[in-house]
Amino acid sequence: MLVDREQIIEALWETLYMTGVSFGFSLLIGFPLGILLVVTRKGHLLENEPVFNVLNAVVNVFRSIPFIILLVAIIPLTRLIVGTSIGTTAAIVPLVFYAGPYIARLIENSLLEVDNGVVEAAKAMGATPGQIVFRFLIPEARSSLVLVMTIAIIGLIGASAMAGAVGGGGLGDLAITYGYQRFDTGVMILTVAILVVLVQGVQTGGNVLSKKLRRS
């Protein structure tokens, strides 16, 4: 193999760093956006057609752009935010633009699954819209929210590997530079194996937590 242990550990760390930090920022954007997509829709708590239509369109636009294009397209913005367009930290910007709207959709779907009767009961007891969202909708959806966040994290692990292609580092970078371009099958198999273990781990963790939170 053309790489040593240290390189692999560093790449794994970079992948975890990219995934973790971009998941944090994506959540910061996606969570409020997802809630807004729910409450501003027709017949809901804070029905507001213009707001809903704009948010809905924005989310759809970002969800339509293939990640590899997004990666390149927002280079100027990336440079503006982190000062460079190359490297692990620079890869986080497109990852957030990719995962934020995705998470918004996932959260929207989760919250919409909550029985409307619960919302009705909440209103009937005089809850404010804020209380309905945070004391009723989110707690009732928490098991499903954990599952969709699992999906989002796995999606980010995959996307972060692609970010490697533009010099973002991480396991994907290792697989492309050594495994693909230098025909080192060993590196290729090893990186893929690590990614498989990573995804399995996240999925299992998500399933266990979700089951623990599910009371029905």
Partner: peptide, 20 residues
């Protein structure tokens, strides 16, 4: 209205309890 609702209890066919 929210204050008035606290003076009006309501029960439902499908109970509408918080499962969590």
């Amino acid at each position: 209205i929210r204050a008035a609702r606290k003076d009006i209890g309501m029960i439902f066919q499908h109970f509408n309890l918080l499962t969590s």
